[in-house]
Design a protein around this nucleic acid. Structure first.
Lengths: 160, 160
DNA sequence: CGCAATTATATTGTGCACAATATTTTAAAC
DNA sequence: GTTTAAAATATTGTGCACAATATAATTGCG
């Protein structure tokens, strides 16, 4: 009865722990906090780490023509707009992690490419999820269940 | 095999969609985006809405002596520190949603109390989760499964 | 061709998050 | 009863998020 989401009273509907939204919000921040000390060692913030993940993903695909990555592509993958990405990428450029340059064939586009310095971070970056998975008291099945549930939810949320 | 989290290769470990962290981060932001137009009507941001939820929760408990709510209590419940809460609560005070005053018996504490104006928002606030639950294509069981999984995960994350 | 609409990015301004530090008040230890 | 430590909040500074707007390049249409 406490779980029939449809017909709850106001009190129950507004209970913090019943709000999927709050659970997502808190879990996300706590998870990022867990990453922080490890990312600090690499000199990265969490969103910067995400940008690298996307860049590595695109580079891995042999099929893509030219492997060019635009700001727009990053934004679509990370669900972020240029108001967030432009200053973030500028900071990463100043740290020598990437280069931004206008595309010659279409000067509206900005092509992002990683420097060797950023390439070298890849091995260290892979140690982060490995380290975090290790000292988790939740079992693999639990984690996979949560992951799959979140994939469904995110799909649902994006399509609105 | 793609799900044996322990022994993945670098590529697979770093894949964006395999990162619980990214799923949480994106889902949280997309969920907040869904709340935004509804909260706009109430003149609230999402963190401000959370503060109201906690205040309403404490007020509902007849047992609590004096029903006094300090900034520390809000921070513990929302997992936020004073660097976030102090300016946030000041903004809410300026909007006439709450009052902040030092406790007489312990002048380190700041007591937060809602104004009638904030009380009146409660009914409208309850309509928000109701409205969002309605047009979800995910079933109740799915949502409850995700919620329970996130409760487990958040518990795990907080205890570190 | 000329021009309106679209596309890609940049800019501005507000509000979080959070680390680091400071301030004030209370409690504890001697 | 001072001194010291601890507790509660405030302040400062950086980096996101995101709405709103602006700018420049390209496309499409009559």
């Amino acid at each position: 009865m406490a779980n029939a989401l449809a017909d709850m009273g106001d009190e129950e509907l507004l209970a913090l722990d019943n709000q999927l939204c709050f659970l997502l919000y808190s879990s996300s921040r706590m998870m990022t906090a867990l990453y922080r000390p490890l990312l600090d060692q690499l000199g990265l913030t969490y969103p910067q780490y995400l940008v690298l993940l996307v860049m590595w993903e695109y580079q891995g695909r042999e099929g893509d023509r030219d492997k060019e990555v635009t700001i727009k592509m990053l934004g679509e993958r990370l669900l972020l707009d240029t108001g967030t990405l432009t200053p973030l990428l500028k900071r990463m450029e100043q740290q020598g992690l990437l280069v931004r340059q206008r595309a010659v064939n279409d000067e509206r586009k900005v092509l992002v490419s990683l420097t060797p310095r950023a390439q070298e971070l890849k091995a260290g970056a892979a140690e982060i999820p490995r380290a975090l998975l290790c000292h988790s008291s939740l079992g693999d099945e639990e984690l996979i269940g949560i992951r799959d549930g979140l994939r469904l939810l995110l799909n649902e949320l994006v399509s609105k």
